[in-house]
């Protein structure tokens, strides 16, 4: 009967392990919200979210994060502008155009692009993209444009990977049908296959947005990090994102300042939860 006993114990062990993910999300939510939300009320939710003055060193200090929210939106949008088209076309290349021998080299290359650590990207941005932007467009190089270019590069593997598998999931009869009706390869791909893979491409974009908005180190290294509200035309000036705000000041912050930084994290977290929700809605549609 010893075996029955083991069987029962291990069943419980397995089940408790399965609950770890739920526990982790629960703990993260509790600690993050308990740490950040009170500060939001102390500062005033509207003031915190829509005020433009972040000066923790002033007396009295001011904690308003609109410049950082807008900053995150700018660099994410910029990254999409560059990363989405290049990523989708590269996925099309890998799926339909590229010779098989080349594919064997390029596919691992995409995985490698995904594996490069974000500090290495950040460093590359510092030594290559920053001087490039400075010399080509002027300004000091640490700018919204620089951050967008770097971030666009970093989300490429995400966009390419998911778009490629979405394209491969489209039944090949569609392609053959299009060709039989007289379409050439490009028309079959761009007129039939890509629209058929639309929701997969959408999922790729949403996941890319999630990656971009959560990226921290690489952005911090090239974005300039000024806490000023930028207008859309000022893409050669520096900006600070929500993520950078946390990582720059968390090391020395105390009291309300620290709580305000945690609250910055809460805002980021809520953004991410919304994006995740959107992603799972799209995926559910795909599954149907």
């Amino acid at each position: 009967m010893k075996r029955d006993y083991n069987e029962k114990i291990m069943r419980v062990v397995f089940m408790v392990s399965a609950l770890a993910a739920i526990l982790a999300v629960g703990l993260i939510c509790v600690f993050l919200f308990a740490g950040g939300v009170p500060a939001m009320f102390k500062i005033g939710i509207f003031k915190f979210l829509f005020g433009t003055d972040w000066s923790p060193g002033n007396t009295p200090p001011s904690f308003e994060i609109l410049p950082m929210i807008v900053g995150s939106v700018y660099v994410t949008a910029g990254a999409m502008l560059f990363g989405v088209p290049v990523g989708i076309f590269t996925a099309v290349f890998l799926t339909y155009v590229c010779p098989k021998k080349l594919y064997k080299i390029l596919k691992p290359a995409v995985d490698l692009l995904a594996g490069v650590p974000s500090v290495v990207y950040g460093f590359f941005g510092m030594v290559i993209i920053v001087p490039f932007v400075r010399n080509t467009f002027g300004g000091d190089g640490n700018s919204i444009l620089t951050a967008s270019l770097l971030l666009g590069m970093m989300i490429l593997p995400t966009i390419i990977g998911i778009t490629e598998s979405a394209l491969r999931a489209v039944p090949s009869e569609l392609y053959e049908g299009a060709v039989a009706l007289g379409a050439d390869r490009e028309r079959a791909v761009f007129g039939v296959m890509l629209p058929a893979a639309k929701s997969g491409v959408m999922a790729a974009i949403v996941l890319g947005i999630g990656r971009a908005i959560g990226e921290t180190m690489a952005i911090k290294m090239v974005a300039g990090n000024q806490t000023l509200l930028r207008m859309p035309g000022e893409f050669l000036k520096g900006v600070r994102t929500l993520t950078a705000n946390v990582v720059i000041e968390m090391g020395y912050a105390e009291g309300l300042h620290r709580e305000a930084l945690i609250a910055t994290g809460v805002v980021l977290f809520v953004f991410i939860l919304l994006i995740n929700l959107l992603f799972s809605v799209i995926n559910r549609k795909n599954a149907q």
Binding site: M15, A18, L19, A21, I22, A24, V25, L27, I28, F31, L32, G35, G210, I213, G214, E215, T216, T243, V246, V247, M250, I262, G265, L268, F269, I272, L273, I275, N276, F279, S280
Partner: peptide
């Protein structure tokens, strides 16, 4: 339970590392 575990695991995989850093610190 399976549904909850899947949903939370999916959430975890979408959380950016800076949030993990904040949580770990707290």
């Amino acid at each position: 339970i399976v549904k909850w575990v899947r949903a939370t695991a999916e959430t975890l995989s979408g959380i950016p590392s800076i949030i993990y850093g904040l949580f770990g610190w707290m």
